[in-house]
Amino acid sequence: MSITLQSVTKRFGANVAVDRLSLEVRPGELFAFLGPNGAGKTTTIKMIVGLLRPNEGHISVCGHAVSGDQAEQGDGLAAKSRMAYVPDQPFVYDKLTGREFLQFVGRMYRLPRAVIEDRIDGLTRRLSMASLLDEYTESYSHGMKQRVVLASAFLHKPEVLVIDEPMVGLDPRTVRTVKDLFIDHVRGGGTVFMSTHTLEVAEAVADRIGIIHQGSLIAVGTLDELRAEQSHDTPLESIFLELTADRDDPQAETVPA
């Protein structure tokens, strides 16, 4: 398995952000992780990449533990070298150019210099950002920063790509390019674990979809399986709204199918 979560729980004080979450994502699979705001998506992602530690349960990426004692003994670094993470708020060093930032990331993954330059060339052409690559990143728009960060994620050809809200701030052409990059990545045997609010993207590219609500995984499967569970042929939006309807909110009951 590329990503394995076994009965993972994360608490913030008395608040349970993720509750006994178990999930497996296979190689060659694009998994879309959906949920309302505050459902526990980003917390789950941060646990997968090792930034937060679960209070209970176990997480591994490509067979390497990212939580617990094993992670501290070197398994965590082995897992990180096989994956890439794009956070919801992309980070780049303001006073580096886009090219320098990509070189920095490439060197972090110990890629030879020639390989770094070759891949930077290919990725920047594909993401249409070659013209701005030698400008300081402080002058980039949000979308441009997102493109640089996405390029940095693909630079070392990771086995697992973990992405939080990848399409925010991107223009339609780049959205299409990014979707194609994801599809190429999973066709090559890689894994994409993507959290998103853009249901159309999930509907278009995801092999399987997981829906988290109030910290619990309430549905998981292919789009057809989710439709079958709801017993009618509806778009993903309706399934999502129905599953995540807040029972305390009277308006939620009136969500159209």
Partner: peptide, 9 residues
């Protein structure tokens, strides 16, 4: 999927 380029040794 090719194995990662980095040399883990």
């Amino acid at each position: 999927m090719p194995k990662p380029t980095p040399d883990m040794a």
